[in-house]
Design a protein around this nucleic acid. Structure first.
Lengths: 215, 215, 215, 215
DNA sequence: AATGAATGAGAGTTCATTCAT
DNA sequence: AATGAATGAACTCTCATTCAT
C-alpha cells in the first residue's frame, strides 16, 4: 500500500541534485541542465516535475521545512515546559543544517537571492517557524519562566537571528566548527543574557545619537 | 553643455542611483543602463568609475561601512563603559538602516546574493564590525559587567544576528514599524535575557534528538 | 512544425551560409545572427554546432581543405611523374577557388585576419599543403626533372606564393578573368623561369644596397 | 630651412607607436588609447593627425611605400639592365621587411584585414609596386633577357607572390631565418625556373580535372 | 513519461570618437 | 595645439523553456 511511484523518486532525485548543484555553484550560476544531468535525467524532464527553476528552490524549501517543522512540533508536544520548547527548536535548527552542509549553503545564502523569494518564504513556512518560536515564548510567559514584559515579536526575531547568524558564520567558515553543539549555549545566552548581573545593566544617561536623516 | 570635470560628483551619483535601482528591482534584475540613466549619465561612464556591476555593490558597501564604522568607533571612544558600547553599536546599526530604507533593502537582501559576495564582505568590513562588537563584549568582561563564562564569538554572533533579523523583518514588512527605537529593547534582551529568573532556566533532563544523518 | 532531428544538415547549412555572409560583409562585420538567419535557424542554434564565431571560420577551412587535399593526394598517387604532381596541385588550387568565388574571398582575405588565425592554419592544413608541394619537388629532384641545387623550402614558397598572389588578384579584380586556365602558365613559369636563356641571367656585379638599419 | 615642425614629429611618433602596437596585439585588438599612450600623447591628440583608426594604418602604408618605392626607383634608374631591376626590387622588398620585423607583421597580416583595405592598397601604392615590377619585366623583354612569350601580368604576380609568401613564412616563423639573403635565390628561381632542363618540362598528356561546379 | 534539439530574448562591457576646457 | 572625460552604439553568447518525437 502507498508504494511510491517511480516518478516520486525522480522528483526527489531532482531536489537532491539541486541542493548539490546550488550549493556548489550558486543558484544563478546553476543551469537547469546541470541539475538534470546531476539527477541523471533529460533537461526537459525537470519541467514535468517543476514549473521552472525558481520552483525547484521553492519546493526544496517547502519539503524540508514541512518535514522538519512537523518533527519539531511533535517533539514539542511531548515536552512539558516552554524552555525545552526553545531548546528543541534550536536543536532542530542547528541539527538539520549542521548535518547537511550543502543544504545549509542553500538555506543561508541561495534562498535569499531577492525580496521576491524572501517575501515568499517569510509568508509561508518561515512564518510557521516564527509562530512556533513565538508560541514557545508565550507559553513560557504563561508558565512564568519567561519575562512578562518582553515583546514576543522582538524576542522571536532575536532568537531566530542568533541561530541564523551562527549558521551563516559556520557556512562561510566552511564548517570549521561543530554547529550542533552550539544549540545549548545559544539558548542559554538567550535566556540568561550576557550581563554579569541585573545591577550592571542599569544604564547611565547617554548622549542621544544625532539622528539626522539621509546617510 | 555639461561640465566635464573630474571634480564632478559622478561617482557618488552613481552610488546613490544604484541604491535606488537595486532596492526597487533587485541586483540581478537591475541593468547597468538603469543605473546610468537614474544617475543621468551615459552607460559607458559607469565604467570610468567602477570596474563592473559587482564593483558598484562592493564599493557601495565599502563606502557606507567605512563612514559608519568610523562614526561608531569615535562615539565608542567617548563612552565610558562597555554596555554603552553595545548600545552605541545597536543605535548605529538600526539608525543607519532605519533612516535609509532603500539602503536597508540592499544591505539585507541584495548584498547576500552569493557566497562570493558574502565571503568578500565577511572578510572585510563585516569582520571589522564583528571585531567592534567582540571588543565591546571583551571590555564588558574586563570591567565585570558581562559574564566571564560567555563565549565572545557566540555572543557576538547572537548580538549581530538579533539586530540583523529585526532589520530583515522590518525590510520585508515594508518599514511597518519604527526600527530605530528597537535598539534599546534588543540590547536589553541581549544583556538580561528572556528568562524570568535564573532559577527558571535550570534544565530538566530531556530526551536527546534522534540525530540520524542525512536529512 | 520543423523537424528537430540531429540528422539535419544544419552544420553544413551554417557553413554554407557563413561563406556567403563572410564573403559579402567580411568576417568582423558579420554578425552571428546574419549567419543564422542566412541558414534559416535561430541564433542560438549556431552554438550547438560551433563553439563560437571563430570556430565557424576554422571548421570551414578544415572541411574544405580536408576534402580537397585528399582529392589532390589521390590524383597525385595516380600520376607517374613529379611535374604532373605540381600541375595537379595548381589545377586543384585554382580550380577550387575559381569555381567558388565567395570561398575564394574567405580564403584569400578573411582567413588572414590575424596572426592567431594565420598561425593556426599554417600549423595545420596549410602545412599539409606545403608538404604536398615539397614532396612533389623532392620527387622531381629524385627523378631528375627538377634541379638538385634548388632549396625545396624556397621553391615551395615560391610555387605557393605565385598561385596565391594570382588568386588574390582575381578576387580583388572581382573575378574579371578566368582563374582556372592560369594553372598551366603558372606551372610553366615556375618550371622554366622567366629568362630568355641561361646565359642572360649571369649577373653583372652590382652595387650593394646601403642596408642601414631602421627603416 | 625646412625645419620640421614639432607636430610632424608627433605624427611620426604616432605611426611608430602604431607599428609596435599593431604588431604585438593585432589591428583589431589594438585600441587607439594603446597607440596614444605608446606615443606619449593623449587619446584625443591622435585625431588631430589622423581621421580615425583605419587612417593610421592607411597612412602608415602610404608613408613607408612612398619612401621605399622612390628609393627603389632611383636605384633602378641607375641600373643598366632589366634583370638587375628585378634584383633591386627583391632586395628592397626583403630588405625593408627583414630589417623591420614589426613592420613586416603589419604589412603581411594586419594590412589584409578586409577587402576594403586590400582594394584600397591594391589600387594605390601596391599598384605602383606592381607597375614597377611589370616595367622591369617589359624592359627585360625589350632587351631580350626575358622571354617574349611570357604574360607580363602573370609574371608580375608570380614574382610578387614568391617574395610575399616567403615574407609571410618568415613572419609566422618569428624571424627564424635570414630574410634578406633570400633575395638572390628567389630571383634566380624566378628567372631560371625549377626544371632541370627544358626537355624535362614537356608535359605528357594528363587526364583533365573533373571540374564539376560547387565545392 | 521522457527526451534533447531548437529557440531567441536579453545585457554587460568595450572603445572609437567627440568636444569643452 | 593638446587634453581626457564622456559618450552610446554595437554584439557575442548563454540558458531557461518548449515541444515534436
Amino acid at each position: 500500500m502507498m508504494a511510491r511511484r517511480r516518478t516520486d523518486d525522480k522528483r526527489q532525485r531532482i531536489l537532491d541534485a539541486a541542493v548539490q548543484v546550488f550549493a556548489s555553484k550558486g543558484f544563478f550560476a546553476s543551469r537547469v541542465s546541470d541539475i538534470a544531468s546531476a539527477a541523471g535525467i533529460a533537461d526537459g524532464t525537470v519541467y514535468l516535475y517543476f514549473r521552472n527553476k525558481d520552483d525547484i528552490l521553492i519546493k526544496l524549501f517547502d519539503d524540508v521545512m514541512g518535514v522538519h517543522l512537523e518533527a519539531a512540533r511533535q517533539e514539542i508536544r511531548a515536552a512539558d515546559n516552554a524552555l525545552d520548547h526553545l531548546r528543541i527548536i534550536a536543536d532542530h535548527h542547528l541539527g538539520l543544517l549542521g548535518r547537511n552542509p550543502e543544504l545549509a549553503v542553500v538555506f543561508q545564502v541561495e534562498l535569499r537571492q531577492s525580496t521576491k523569494f524572501m517575501e515568499l518564504f517569510t509568508a509561508s513556512w518561515l512564518k510557521d517557524y516564527f509562530d512556533l518560536v513565538e508560541a514557545a515564548i508565550a507559553a513560557g510567559q504563561s508558565e512564568g519562566t519567561i519575562r512578562e514584559d518582553l515583546s514576543r515579536k522582538l524576542a522571536t526575531h532575536a532568537f531566530f537571528g542568533a541561530l541564523d547568524a551562527i549558521v551563516t558564520s559556520w557556512v562561510l567558515a566552511r564548517n570549521a566548527f561543530d554547529l550542533t553543539e552550539l544549540a545549548k549555549p545559544v539558548v542559554d545566552l538567550f535566556l540568561t543574557g550576557a550581563a554579569a548581573s541585573a545591577a550592571a545593566v542599569v544604564a547611565k544617561p547617554r548622549r542621544a545619537l544625532k539622528s539626522a536623516g539621509g546617510r
